[in-house]
Amino acid sequence: MSRFAEPMARLIEELKKLPGIGSKTAQRLAFHILRSNDDDAEALAAAVRDVKASLRLCSVCNNITDVDPCAYCASATRNQRLVCVVEEPTNIASIEKTKHFNGVYHVLHGLISPLHGIGPEQLRIANLARRVEAGQLDEVIIATNPTVEGEATATYLSGQLRRPGLKVTRIAMGIPVGSDIEYADEITMLKAMEGRREL
């Protein structure tokens, strides 16, 4: 028999399914929701419902959006011929923080991962290929992580997208700003040397 009343036990079980939430945290959150006033609890439930009901993928770039096309793809002030390819929608925020990128995005929703049985056919690249095919782009920047999976995806994409007149580029890799060369590992240093630029 459960230590908690059935609705409470159910809420704890559901919260435990969230990433990084264990039994104790789930219990704490559940009791917090129980103690909160009706409006707050209702607002939380409505927000969870809305997120599932109103959010979808942008038909142009696969970003998560409530309007299709998304704000980036519909923007008249952004360079629609410059596309930055990222792994997940959350990566867009990191690039937007720079305030120096004025192009648009394409979200793959994953990387090639042979150990998990994920090949190129599982990635969302069909709509990007269509944009390239239609000659709508001048440059595609591949901004996947500098990991084996990220590199394999970048190499595959560059092979698939290469067309006359289209520049396919890869984000630079190397020493983080503010760090010390002394502590850089060999592979980071190698990539930094390979990606050096003329001053």
């Binding site: 090639i112 991962s113 042979p114 150990l115 090949g119 190129p120 500098p146 990991t147 084996v148 999976e149 590199e151 394999a152 190499t155 595959y156 590992d185 060999e186 592979i187 190698l190 990539k191």
Partner: peptide, 25 residues
């Protein structure tokens, strides 16, 4: 961990990534 040899030192093509994953698996 100290890197002695990294697969990232050479180009990681899709076939190479699959082959490396095969060895690991």
């Amino acid at each position: 961990c100290e890197v002695l040899e990294s697969p990232l030192a050479a180009e990681v093509s899709y076939p190479r990534a699959v082959a490396l994953s095969h060895v690991a698996e």
